Amino acid sequence: MDISSAYRSTIMPPTLMPGDKVRFVSPASTPDRDSVLRRAKILEGWGLRVDFGEHAFEKLSFLAGKDDDRLADFNAALGDPEIRAIFATRGGKGSYRIADRLDYGALRHDPKFVVGFSDITALLLALDRNCGLVAVHGSVMDESGSHPTNMALRRLLMEGGGVLLTARTNENTAVLTTGGRASGRLIGGNLDTIAACAGWALPKLDGAILLLEAVEMQIGQVDRQLTMLRKAGHLDGVAGIAVGQFTGFRPSSGGLTVIDLLRDHLERLGVPILGGLPVGHGDDWLPVPHGAPALLDASGGTLTVAFRSPLAA
């Protein structure tokens, strides 16, 4: 993939400025109200004005209210010219239920940040597939504003530029790293949600850098999902694989680990693999632009993602 062409094919939201208004919405599961309010205080400390979707704290079983209500909150934020960024209160489950009904036209007319991860991967994928929006895979940590994750998110949203992630040798997926370099748009996120989106919300991955992370799944589930993605052709043509944090896994009864399973599936693709990236549900994870041009250097242990200008391949 020509990285300059990839840059031109995306929609880049403008950076946030002090005084801009942002909104928390709940497209998936119900959040803890106190946690959201603490995160809102952090954003206010950045000089932003914060409000909340009408149904942000509702609860209907595992969902934050009815599908139509969660969708209405999200689309209202998309269509409100005063709102400059949309933050998901949490992941959980349920964003995939509404991802096909987002107001993509509003974003084409007035691009703005969408920030979330985990189950919110469904929205990031759908936004990329339907309008090419560069979103943010990440969230505000429910800790001090000076937490490294929050500082990285602030730089990304309010200063722009690029993001450089360095693989960590203490992450269990670090041993998956091969060698070589690859460039392409960074697409993906939570493996469970990627699999749920295959065939309807998952963008074409030809020429892309596929980002993968997962948390607290059975090894058999990972095997089913990767098998389906490979055999259905969804992984055909990927340029490289960026592997983040796979946390909360136990070996199978026969001793097979999730790392063994990932190696078995991913090495069949014959592309550069960079593991050990601080992206996902583990400790001290970092935000990263989703859908933006990226350069994966497996030999050097880095993933560089552009946000305002193309990268040199």
Rank of each mutant, 00 (worst) to 15 (best):
R39T: 11
S61A: 15
H55I: 06
H109S: 14
V50L: 03
F57R: 04
R38D: 10
I83C: 08
Y96M: 04
E58N: 03
K59S: 14
L71F: 02
A40D: 00
D80N: 14
R23Y: 11
A40V: 00
I86P: 04
D67S: 05
E54D: 14
R84C: 01
R38A: 11
I83E: 06
V36I: 15
A77I: 07
I86G: 01
G91I: 01
D73T: 03
D80V: 08
G47I: 10
D73Q: 13
G53T: 03
R97L: 12
D103V: 00
R23E: 08
R101E: 12
V50W: 09
G65H: 01
N75K: 05
D80S: 10
K112W: 02
E54S: 10
V36C: 06
I98L: 09
L102S: 02
I42W: 09
R97T: 11
D73M: 02
F113A: 07
V36A: 07
R101G: 06
R23S: 03
Y96Q: 03
I42A: 13
A85N: 01
K41D: 14
E54H: 08
D69K: 14
A85D: 07
F117G: 06
F87H: 05
W46K: 11
R84P: 03
A64T: 02
H55Y: 10
I42Q: 05
V36R: 00
P27R: 08
S26C: 08
D34Q: 14
D100G: 10
N75V: 09
D100T: 12
A77C: 12
G105E: 12
G91Y: 08
R108N: 03
F74R: 03
S95K: 04
D67P: 05
E44I: 02
G92M: 06
E54G: 01
S29P: 09
R70E: 06
T30M: 07
V25A: 05
G79L: 00
R49D: 13
S95E: 04
R39Q: 14
L63D: 05
R38Y: 10
P81H: 06
G47L: 09
R90V: 15
D69Q: 14
S26E: 11
T30V: 12
L60M: 11
N75L: 00
H109M: 14
Y104W: 10
